[in-house]
């Protein structure tokens, strides 16, 4: 794959920019940044301007004194530590669970989580600086970390992971006071930049692993209605934070339908942006018929 990357254009997406124009080739990226920063801003206008649209943080928030939202993962840890939360937190967790079952589990990672801004920046810089090589930890490590956090909660009888969780540390730090949390986040940034490509979000983060599990069953998916039009430019692989999810659906490995059903897909939509052939589109996990493309490779066997 490295060999292919070297022969591809220096900036992935250049073809798409040429074919569709800059804006269309960055549409989902821009929307995603708006979502990430917008959500952060909704939280921040409270402490900054005493405009309390949303109170709390990503672990639990209360919007307009009406809508409770709770992180089901932190509630799960609380349950593992043998504490049953009050109805408010349970309701909030159920709403969030349903939401991500609709929009895609790891949509949390790419559309909401503030750490994604940091790790995306690290990856962008990594490419810009031409840093090659990456430590190897297998991607499923995150599920082990997820399991470990639940065991740690059960054994210690406390939500132990919250002590060092960089995700909530960053969000809480921005809203309340950051303290030395910046050091933890700098460590995550440097780890992603110098040690490991997509290291934190793609290999270690148990929050992402938890939302991946939701993503196994979620509705919104990246579909490949025109996968036969793929010209193997590899741009989607270059920009995807979880490139292993693309291949089965794109190349119809073992009869995979033209929809990315892999749990780790973050629904970031960057592949849609950078594809000059418009192979990808947002859709649902159902109704996976392929648009007929004449004169190109056949679709998966029935």
């Amino acid at each position: 794959m490295n060999a292919i990357l070297k022969t591809s254009p220096p900036r992935p997406g250049a073809e798409a920019v040429a074919a569709k124009g800059w804006l269309a080739a960055h549409k989902w990226l821009i929307l995603r940044r708006c979502s990430q920063l917008g959500i952060l801003l909704l939280f921040l206008v409270g402490p900054w301007f005493s405009l309390w649209i949303v109170k709390g943080n990503l672990n639990f928030s209360y919007t307009l004194n009406f809508l409770p939202l709770a992180d089901p993962y932190v509630i799960l840890q609380s349950l593992a530590a043998r504490q049953v939360p009050e109805k408010m937190a349970l309701t909030g967790a159920a709403i969030v669970l349903l939401l991500y079952l609709l929009v895609g589990g790891r949509a949390y990672c790419s559309w909401v989580c503030p750490v994604n801004l940091l790790t995306d920046f690290a990856y962008w810089l990594r490419v810009r600086l031409g840093l090659k090589g990456s430590a190897h930890i297998s991607r499923p490590t995150r599920y082990w970390v997820l399991g470990m956090t639940l065991v740690a909660a059960a054994v210690s009888g406390s939500i132990a992971w919250e002590m060092i969780n960089p995700v909530s540390m960053l969000h809480r730090g921005l809203l309340f006071s950051i303290g030395l949390a910046w050091a933890v986040l700098l460590a995550v940034f440097l780890f992603d930049l110098f040690v490991m490509r997509h290291g934190w979000c793609g290999h270690l983060c148990p929050v992402g692993a938890f939302y991946s599990l939701i993503g196994k069953f979620s509705l919104t998916r990246i579909k490949l209605p025109a996968r036969a039009a793929c010209n193997d430019c590899m741009d989607c692989f270059a920009v995807c934070p979880e490139p292993q999810v693309i291949r089965p659906a794109l190349k119809a490995i073992a009869g995979t339908p033209p929809v990315i059903l892999e749990a780790n897909c973050t629904n970031c939509g960057r592949c849609i942006d950078v594809c000059s052939k418009d192979v990808f589109a947002f859709g649902t996990r159902f109704n996976t018929t392929v648009a007929p493309v004449t004169g190109l490779a056949q679709a998966a066997p029935k």
Partner: peptide
Amino acid sequence: SAACIRCGMCVRDCPFDILHL
């Protein structure tokens, strides 16, 4: 430490701002 999910709602609703996280 098992029940608190570190959301800071108590901090926000304290009218005298005495609480810290």
